[in-house]
């Protein structure tokens, strides 16, 4: 399994050249980082090249790295992560592209994998990442008329609005939320201790 991945990693390094920014194998999974400019061409190559044949797009999701490691992150804020599956070779690969922080726009891959359509709409809805070339980039999961991008780290967990029926106006109205955010278990990153969380039964 790992040999096959290492093999694939070398093939990709040769084929994609400068487009490939990084390729590493961790926990038997290959993660490939690709530049924004060469992304679309790289996707076509991954799908059609006989050595790759990643014919199925499993998943697309956005990531907001702004609070990663409690401020240890230095790269761009937004990333889009793609999971691909090759049925003929029984292999998986993960692609990551970083988008601009101010105006995140990445190329759409709907013309490469039709499955990308809704996944890209979801990523746009939740993270505000735009997909250039998407045929129908509407919100998908959030309410009609929703404001904001709820999965960004600076969006509060309790949201911004709440909804109730107003008997005076005879309709449902939105108001600023009165719910207070409550943290029961604080988020802790423990300083590294040698082998502390290494499983005992390994």
């Amino acid at each position: 399994m790992t040999d096959a991945l290492e093999n694939l990693r070398q093939i990709l390094s040769a084929k994609l050249g400068d487009t490939l920014r990084d390729a590493r194998i961790d926990r038997e999974e290959l993660t490939v980082e690709i530049t924004l400019e060469g992304f679309h061409a790289a996707c076509l190559c991954l799908r059609d090249d006989p050595a790759c044949r990643f014919d199925m797009l499993i998943d697309v999701c956005g990531v907001d790295y702004s609070e990663y490691g409690d401020g240890a992150w230095e790269g761009p804020r937004f990333a889009v992560v793609y999971h691909l599956l090759s049925l003929p070779h029984r292999q998986r690969i993960r692609l990551r592209i970083f988008a601009d922080t101010e105006l995140p726009i990445v190329p759409s891959v709907v013309d490469v994998w039709a499955a990308a359509n809704w996944f890209e709409r979801e990523t746009f809805d939740l993270y505000g990442i735009l997909f250039d070339g998407h045929p129908d980039l509407r919100r998908i999961l959030t309410d009609y008329g929703f404001v904001g991008y709820p999965f960004r780290k600076d969006f509060p967990l309790v949201g911004t609005v709440e909804m109730r029926y107003d008997p005076d106006q005879g309709r449902v109205i939105y108001e600023p939320t009165r719910t207070e955010e409550r943290v029961v278990v604080p988020r802790i990153i423990r300083a590294e201790e040698e082998g502390r969380y290494n499983a005992r039964n390994q």
């Binding site: 998943d59 999701c61 907001d64 409690d70 988020r187 990153i189």
Partner: peptide, 25 residues
């Protein structure tokens, strides 16, 4: 295929968890 994509930054909570639901596709 029901999948979980999980990013951890070493904390006691996941940094990002994406649920890949088959019905969505």
């Amino acid at each position: 295929e029901f999948g979980i994509y999980m990013i951890s930054d070493g904390a006691n909570k996941p940094y990002r968890m994406k649920i890949r639901a088959p019905g969505f596709s």
